[in-house]
Amino acid sequence: MTPSSQNRSRGLVILSTSFVALWLLIAAVPFLWTLWGSFKVQGDFFSKSDWTYALYGVRTLAETGATFTGQGYHGAWIEQEFWRATLNTGIVVFFTVIISLTLGTLGGYALARSGYKYAFWILMAALVFRAMPHITLVSGYLLPFFEWNLWGHLPTTIIVLVAINQPFTLWMLHSFFLNIPKDMDESAMVDGCTRFQAFRHVIIPVMWPGVITTGLFSFLLAYNDFAVTAMLLSQENQTMVPKIASFLGTTQVEGNVMFAVAAVVSATAPLFALVMMFQRQIVSGLTAGAVKG
């Protein structure tokens, strides 16, 4: 505890604590509400008569005989084959993260150890590329990909996501490698290692915390992407996010919205698990670029 916070006045403590509590409500209630509601029928989740129906499941009880129902999940996962989209997401995300990290580690290390001007220019270019709205790039890909029959396949999407990911990965790993003292690999080189051997035997063993943090953000980028996956994947190769969007496109038949709700909850669950496991790395990653200025 900091000394300044120990002697706060009671009123201020109550004010600031209730503000945080309010913020937590705003942050968490939408998720809890949707999780709870995903086990109800549409008549309850969107209740015309009384919103508390969604809490108690009045219509759900009337329609299915129990206050909880797995209909939405059954519809989404089995009828609409959401498992296929989950599998595709798994493949895309796994390879995107692995390839991004491999390229990014090599590049970030080089940028951190080169004092020449061009390294600075590459970083600046990466910053501009980072700001590029993804959909503008997609409009550049579509026509060539159609012409060369590359459109619709998972590998194409993976490579595109890797490339879009590179600017961010480079920046993050670059600032991480700057923190590893130069003397380490340079003394290895004095001992007769080539630059690559120094990287292999000296840098790789100590770089994992930075790589894991960067990997988490690559994961989030690939997992959360909508612009690229929605435009570049064919119907059968769709990943989760465009699949959910297509649930909404299909006519709002009774029950169909609940498929989307169930799918949304299913797609959010892995993210929650991720934050729970890697909270510290995510926090340190978000602040890595900032605190150092």
Partner: peptide
């Protein structure tokens, strides 16, 4: 050495970010 280290990453960015801008 710098070139060899940065090449994979740089070519990914040139091919899929810089060239698409030209294509656009």
């Amino acid at each position: 050495t710098f070139l060899w280290f940065i090449l994979p990453s740089l070519s990914a960015m040139v091919l899929f970010i810089a060239l698409p801008i030209v294509s656009v």
